[in-house]
Design a protein around this nucleic acid. Structure first.
Lengths: 234, 234
DNA sequence: TTGCCCAGTCTTGTATGCAAGATTGAGCGC
DNA sequence: GCGCTCAATCTTGCATACAAGACTGGGCAA
């Protein structure tokens, strides 16, 4: 009468073999919604009705509403007062603005990373680059993109600036979405890979100024190819 | 019976002569809390208990909780799961990170502004600078700081990049808070003014690269003076 | 037929109730 | 005297109820 089989007093959220509770519901809801937006399941301009998402996610409106604020801060949705939440649009001029800023942020990250990077980390990035070249040779785009993002993320992490990291994290969902919605032109793909090798050379020689310039240019160069797929304003 | 005097179909929230409803309560709550944090009324590390703020603001917990998310996205508070919300700390290393990133963001804004600024806008900034010099001469710090912020804001606006503007707006509360918590050293004040004049010269000649470099340096230079007042970690 | 008005329905904004996790302080054992 | 345990209280997380603002479709008049 004093102990039941399932009466475990574990309060840690990492116990979940039964998948009991991974974390906060609004965090979970935000992750799910973010994934749905990035995958295109929720296309730009889609109306997000609270109740519908509640049914879909199996939670009540409170965590869904809080998740909306998180996504709004990431620029993935627009909150219209007294009206529905809309998945934000991605117009061509917005993309230009986004990539300009994002390139500058990554440029700063690259500059800082050059000041701090260790030999081991240079080796790590080098191996990632080799993998990326390999995936390019085999035309495996998904794997390539995955490694690509990982290199950029590692660079920001090596920069070791939490403010920079948070700004980067707030922008990267939109950048990833833009990439996901556009197809990578084969010519641009090869060109981008070449730029990456040049960037790695700068990183390995710890030339921060050069790497920052290359990084900014890297994003500006990829811009026209993304815009070809972006829709025109209605 | 078909028309009443007050039967205006205005659905805009800006009608309120009776002060009926200024906007959403959570927006209002976020503004109030932001002001309390920036003014120092809520000092770094302060615990924000929902019920207490509800009484203080005269609203229920729901809008307060949503305001917390907004402020968390601005980096003004830290959300601890299942524990209280804390006003975020401002340690010396954090300030260094913040000013490095902020200087870079403003640097990009300055670079873009150089490409777009009109003669009229150069005149406008010039007048603001003249006012600033005047306030410096009369040792009116509050007015000086106000003009100072206005110049920076106008520069970002002239850059005409909404993504950049949103990043800037998300960082500027923390920068302003750091400035508010520290006293401006007189020597640094004069030095900063000199830097501003150099920056204006670059802006007027539309030398974006130079202006970006000066802007970044401007923030790096002011950093040591802020840190002298910042508390050491417990 | 076409345009406007209005009521019904839907959706969002806010308040409140309930349960679970965290904190604290007293009591007990060492 | 000191440290641990446990329970009472507090605080947060989530769900739900209620009210107010938007949307939609039918009906009426021109």
């Amino acid at each position: 009468m004093d102990n039941e089989p399932e009466n475990d007093t574990l309060t840690d959220e990492t116990r979940g073999p039964a998948g009991r509770r991974k974390g906060q519901l609004h965090t979970e809801a935000a992750s799910r919604l973010r994934a749905m937006i990035l995958s295109g399941e929720l296309p730009p301009g889609a109306r997000l009705r609270e109740m519908q998402l509640c049914d879909q996610l199996g939670v009540s409106r409170t965590p869904v509403r809080e998740a909306f604020r998180t996504l709004a801060a990431e620029g993935l949705v627009d909150l219209l007062p007294n009206r529905s939440v809309l998945v934000s649009e991605l117009h061509a001029p917005d993309l230009e603005h986004l990539f300009l800023v994002f390139g500058s942020v990554e440029g700063l990250a690259a500059e800082l990373a050059c000041q701090r990077i260790s030999e081991a980390e240079i080796g790590e990035i080098g191996r990632l680059l080799a993998d990326m070249i390999d995936f390019h040779g085999r035309q495996e785009r998904a794997s390539y993109m995955s490694i690509n993002q990982l290199i950029h993320r590692r660079t920001v992490e090596i920069a070791a600036n939490p403010v920079l990291l948070s700004v980067w994290q707030s922008l990267v969902p939109r950048v990833e979405r833009a990439r996901a919605l556009a197809n990578l032109d084969t010519g641009r793909w090869t060109e981008a890979l070449f730029e990456h090798t040049k960037m790695f050379t700068a990183l390995a020689s710890r030339d921060g100024e050069l790497l920052a310039r290359l990084t900014r240019q890297h994003f500006l160069n990829s811009l026209p190819y993304l815009q070809t797929r972006s829709d025109s304003k209605p």
